[in-house]
Simulated scan of single mutants.
Amino acid sequence: MQRIFAADIGGTNARFALFAEHEGNLALRLAVWEQSADLHTAQDMLHIMQQQLQTSLAEGDALVVALAGPTQGLQGKLTNGPLRVDLNGVAQRHNLACCLLINDFTAQAYAMLTPAGAGAKFVRGGVRATTDSAQTKAILGAGTGLGAASLVGCGSAAGNVSWLAVPSEAGHAAFPFMGAEEHAYQGFLARELGCDFPSVENVLCGEGLSVLHYYLTGQFFYPPAVGEQALSHDTPTLQWYARLLGRFCRQWILSTLCLGGLWIAGGIAAKNPLCVEHPAFFQELSVGDDVGGIVAATPILLIADANSGLWGAARAALEHQQWQGLGSNAET
């Protein structure tokens, strides 16, 4: 049995967990949440993690940190926060067999293979189409920021499927507005945010929620209040948001060919499931040509487990170890 420390650091929340692994099965022993704004360095993060989990890193076998921002090797920075991470030397100091720093949606991609993914609510489709499928899977999620990734199955010498997470920066692509009404809103959003081409993240996350509700109603709410006041029941804000989210889901399905399923994560949809249950969401999925019936055939699921990133980080350690094993077998 091995012990895996997992961290999932977002713009608002920093989540930490300790997992036990036995014969490929993960068990969550303890999970705690802190505020990301309190973290500035890797030392801060590791100190709080060990303190809150009441376990020293020296007692573990692996550490995986999922960060909502760009990563390179064992270094990275939080996009919406002060944290800068450098994990170089951590494995040696604490005698860890595995130490990884990954993007948070690389972790969310691996979460699809865990109980967090298996327990997701089906928005459209059937269980059999996803749980036993080796077809490509994809995930996206809107919260403080927007992430998107896919998971590609690769055969191994033993005949089992190994999985490779493919990250993306799809959230920073320009959002595809359609029609005069939406283009009028595009101009308003661009002026409010001071940008020429609003991105997918600008439209579907954080401040974009406040701007959308203000544009439609003349009322200004901070993003959490928009969810409580305007996404919890049928309102013009919900109709617009569901339509815009559905459009990005359709694009991501076509971009990734994720016939194994599209999982929707992130705090906005998890707290306000009407965003993916409203007729406007489903109508947008059917707009335009569906080449080969790909969009219609793809199951869509909603992840409700707020610790899914932690599960995915722990699973990333197991996949990393499996890929290392495959590399060793290839060398011999």
Rank of each mutant, 00 (worst) to 15 (best):
S156F: 07
S156W: 05
A157V: 13
A157W: 06
A157I: 14
A157R: 06
A158Y: 04
A158I: 08
G159F: 09
G159W: 04
G159Y: 04
V161G: 00
S162P: 01
S162W: 10
S162L: 14
L164V: 15
L164Y: 05
A165C: 08
A165I: 11
V166M: 10
V166Q: 09
V166C: 08
V166L: 12
V166A: 09
P167Y: 13
P167A: 13
P167R: 11
P167E: 13
S168R: 02
S168N: 05
S168T: 07
E169Y: 01
A170D: 04
A170Y: 02
H172S: 06
A173Q: 01
A173S: 05
A173M: 02
F175L: 04
F175G: 01
P176L: 09
F177Y: 05
M178T: 10
G179W: 02
A180P: 00
A180R: 06
A180C: 04
E181D: 13
H183N: 08
H183K: 02
A184Q: 07
A184F: 04
A184L: 09
A184G: 06
Q186G: 01
Q186N: 03
G187M: 12
G187K: 11
F188Y: 14
L189G: 00
A190L: 07
A190Q: 03
A190P: 00
R191D: 13
E192S: 11
L193M: 13
L193E: 10
G194Q: 11
G194M: 12
C195F: 12
C195H: 10
D196P: 00
F197L: 10
P198Q: 13
V200K: 01
V200A: 10
V200N: 05
E201S: 07
E201Q: 07
N202D: 14
N202A: 14
N202Q: 07
V203M: 13
V203G: 04
V203F: 06
L204V: 07
L204R: 03
L204C: 07
C205H: 05
C205G: 06
G206A: 15
E207T: 12
G208P: 00
G208V: 12
G208S: 12
S210V: 10
L212S: 05
L212N: 01
H213K: 07
H213L: 14
Y214V: 00
Y214Q: 10
Y214C: 05
Y215K: 02
Y215L: 06
L216F: 11
L216D: 03
T217V: 02
Q219N: 08
F221P: 00
F221C: 04
F221H: 11
Y222P: 00
Y222R: 15
Y222E: 14
Y222G: 00
Y222S: 09
Y222T: 14
P223R: 15
P223I: 15
P224D: 14
P224V: 15
P224S: 13
P224T: 15
P224C: 13
G227Q: 09
G227E: 10
E228C: 02
Q229K: 11
Q229S: 07
Q229C: 11
Q229T: 08
A230N: 01
A230F: 03
A230P: 00
L231Q: 02
S232C: 10
H233D: 12
H233M: 10
T235V: 10
T235R: 02
T235D: 03
P236L: 15
P236A: 15
